[in-house]
Simulated assay, not measured.
Amino acid sequence: MAEPTGTARLAVLIDADNAGAKHLERLLAEIAKYGTAGVRRAYGDWTSTQLGSWKATLLEHSVQPIQQFSYTTGKNATDSALIIDAMDLLHSGNLDGFCLVSSDSDFTRLAARIREQGLTVYGFGERKTPKPFVAACDTFIYVENLETPTAPPKESASSSLKNDKALTKLLTEAVEAAGGDDGWAQLGTVGSNLSRLASDFDSRTWGYSKLTDLMKAHPDYQVESRSAGEGKSPNAYVRRKQTGRR
């Protein structure tokens, strides 16, 4: 996942027709890791009873509801309104990034266009979100990962990590790219590599709150902490476990 800056100015644009209100509080807490959400807007037809669960939540979290009537059956006017506002905000020059909240592939081109302008795009959606939209974002976070965490995985879960081919491929590429001649790689660099390789990489997907915990649980890797000097926090390093003599 992308490194948070804390001071980045962000616009949060929510497709309320395609997102659930129950995740809003945790979603905003997640966004706070990346910057300040100065713009908070939710788009939908607020005269519809289908958005009733959103109304109290929006007021509580200072999110501005943007009314968009459904003029024609089968046409999503909400998407168009969100995209038009996003382009206006993009050209205002007052932002560092956007948070697009939707599981709808219709925002794929919008995400790509914002990135072309040099701004960061954070996407938030359900696991059903089409891959093109996920890939178009710098970082994509599945809202299921924002739900209250359950107990940490048991040690037996390490075998499932080893058998996950997609995860194995990602970790191998990320660690090898960051590794030195001895195979050891700084974990922070590995995390950055993982974000570049897969915008939706998130250790919480496998039940671990931090990348460090996931790497420690994986049977193919070893993690060690190294001193960074007096008064500094130690750095974590990781490498693939050695199998046999070199």
Rank of each mutant, 00 (worst) to 15 (best):
E147G: 10
T150A: 13
T150H: 12
A151F: 12
P153I: 11
K154A: 15
A157V: 10
S159F: 13
S160Y: 14
S160R: 14
K162L: 15
K162S: 15
K162Q: 14
D164Q: 10
A166S: 11
L167R: 11
T168I: 01
T172M: 04
E173H: 12
A174K: 08
V175R: 00
V175T: 12
E176P: 03
E176Y: 10
A178C: 10
G179I: 06
G180Y: 08
D181K: 03
D182E: 06
W184I: 08
Q186P: 00
G188Y: 04
T189S: 08
V190D: 05
N193F: 12
N193K: 07
N193R: 03
S195I: 03
A198E: 09
F201K: 11
F201T: 10
F201C: 09
D202S: 08
S203M: 04
R204N: 02
R204I: 01
T205K: 09
W206L: 05
G207K: 08
Y208I: 01
S209G: 07
K210Q: 08
T212V: 12
D213C: 01
D213R: 06
L214T: 01
L214W: 07
M215A: 03
K216T: 12
A217G: 04
A217R: 04
H218M: 02
V223F: 00
E224C: 07
S227E: 15
G229T: 08
G231C: 02
K232G: 03
S233Y: 14
V238L: 05
